[in-house]
Design a protein around this nucleic acid. Structure first.
Lengths: 336, 336
DNA sequence: CTGTTAGCGCGTTCAT
DNA sequence: ATGAACGCGCTAACAG
């Protein structure tokens, strides 16, 4: 029967019990400074025995940091939008793990960009030691302005040499080229691009796609705007087919857009891939179990997350950093 | 030209500039205590002008709280497992919003349950003011033990009167009954249940399903274990059909499982819903754009998230709370 | 209505 | 190798 009536609330308690000073306990538990090995062991054993953990809030206050990294999801308009895309949740999962490995908490914040300085307000509030912004949305100007005065920030999104901030992302244009080449190699000539070109990532995918098309094909290629929100997305795709359009090849801005297109096509008796070759973008987990399994341009989410965290840590440490871009790959399944 | 050379770092700075004491500034900014209205306005204006925000870490240290709520996702085995299910990301999105509304940060933590006291260790570390556990997984015993000594905890999962903790969840058994009735009404008699019965939520769905079947049908109903991880899930479903099994009605433990089943069926030339009526569970956003659109048992995720947060707040305030259970509804689409 | 003061729990000089 | 003392930024008595 271990008598554990005493509850240890602070290093002062522990110091009293161990018959040493608070600073000795601090040194023992943090591992900093020099200390007699046996003293250190003894104090650590005592801490274990009483299940004592250093108070992170006090530690952070003293060290002038917060111990947290914010992951910001700027939502164009509607709530739930981004997180509803499996791509973002996968990214979030990796970030959570990798930040935890570095000893940081992940603060999840979904922000409705309001006005021009929501980001500046956030970073100035000092609630976190750094910020990872997922997706530029239509907030390029805001990001550039904030980056001018705030170092510990990295952004997931399209590369642009003129950006003032460090970004990590897939070479979206190259992905568009892959999609175009594949559709052409399948003999498709009457093409269509589905997506929302207002997001820079999507715009680059579209530009790459168009650039790889022969002139006569490109002239015949239509651009169909698809909103990012679930219901309107399906309706937009459906309306396109309802209007009698019958392309034979389609490139969608994301796998989710592609699945909306596939569902709308099925509704109009159009068979994928027989009547319509369909290519997505992302290679989310679901792409493989979609019906039919989706041919798609793959982004390496894990590598992206790792780069985001690495670069952020280096910026926090005061280093300069370069934006990086990963090459996408084509994953051939059955939809195209 | 506003000269904003001065940078305000603490209420002491602001107090000096305003010619008042720190406590007056504190009262002005927190809104607590009594204060002359004009003094309050003047200080607030000054704070705005210099973009000053109270230091949350210091505030929390002083108040003996952390200002954060942890959302824990116990992962059976594999990393990425839970977050890969859109059901969980939807839940997470709602929780993030609702906790933010209450002034709490959301600390995301994916934990690999190790040993028997990972939860106790976490709550004792004092890193958060409360814990929301998403899914009981196989950790019922751990939850019960922790609940005995830790109040601010709520759990998303199956209701069980013998649990020591407060849970919020869907009436899974009732959902199973809905699925059974629908399959029977479609004239299906050769049934199968797909899922992982080790999770209590899934077990309840299965039990409800079986309970609503006439004896002669139930005798013919098989249970096919489907792992929670993506690739093995598809392989398990595929192996089932490869073995020559040809049921005419199926109830899947979740929409994601259902989509795996649909993909595996398609691979074996089985048409949904012609040859096989398929019902899922959850009604994730993707259910509507699956091919064919998924008939499914709907859980109200938003209501669930709201209840989790409400109950947690009340437990933090010291109130006693009752577990709640939401009735599911059947959403009829095309797969069954 | 406002100011003074004493900590919240910790890390870190500066002594010894 | 260890201890004493100070302060990170804030809130809450307690005075006045």
């Amino acid at each position: 029967m271990e008598g554990q009536k005493t509850t240890v609330r602070s290093i002062a308690d522990l110091a009293r019990m161990a018959g040493v000073s608070v600073s000795t306990v601090s040194r023992a538990l943090t591992g900093k400074g020099t200390l007699n090995q046996s003293t250190r062991d003894r104090i650590r054993a005592l801490a274990d025995q009483y299940d004592f953990k250093l108070n992170v809030a006090a530690q952070n206050l003293r060290l002038g940091r917060t111990g947290a990294i914010a992951v910001l999801l700027p939502l164009g308009h509607e709530r739930g939008q981004h997180l509803s895309d499996p791509f973002f949740s996968a990214m979030l999962g990796y970030l959570a793990d990798m930040l935890a490995d570095r000893g940081y908490d992940l603060l999840l914040s979904r922000v409705l960009p309001s006005g021009e300085d929501w980001l500046e307000n956030f970073v100035r509030s000092g609630r976190t030691d750094g910020v990872i912004v997922i997706g530029q949305s239509d907030q390029g100007a805001v990001l550039n302005r904030t980056a001018a005065g705030y170092r510990p920030m990295v952004v997931w999104g399209a590369f642009d040499a003129t950006n003032a901030y460090t970004s990590v992302g897939t070479d979206n244009a190259a992905g568009g080229v892959l999609a175009a080449q594949h559709l052409l190699s399948r003999g498709r000539r009457h093409l269509v691009w589905f997506g929302n070109p207002e997001a820079p990532e999507f715009a680059a995918r579209q530009a790459g796609f168009l650039s790889a098309l022969p002139d006569e094909v490109r002239r015949n290629t239509s651009i169909v705007p698809i909103p990012l929100t679930p219901d309107p997305a399906f309706e937009a795709a459906s309306a396109y087919f309802a209007a009698g359009n019958r392309p034979d090849g389609a490139f969608a801005a994301s796998d989710i857009v592609a699945m909306n297109v596939a569902a709308a096509a099925a509704e109009h008796g159009i068979s994928v891939p027989r009547d319509l070759s369909l290519i997505g973008f992302d290679d989310i987990l679901l792409a493989r179990i979609a019906t039919p399994p989706l041919t798609t341009v793959r982004q390496d989410i894990e590598a992206g997350a790792r780069a985001l965290v690495d670069l952020l840590m280096r910026r926090i440490a005061g280093e300069e950093t370069q934006s990086v871009q990963f090459p996408p790959t084509l994953v051939e399944r059955e939809s195209a």
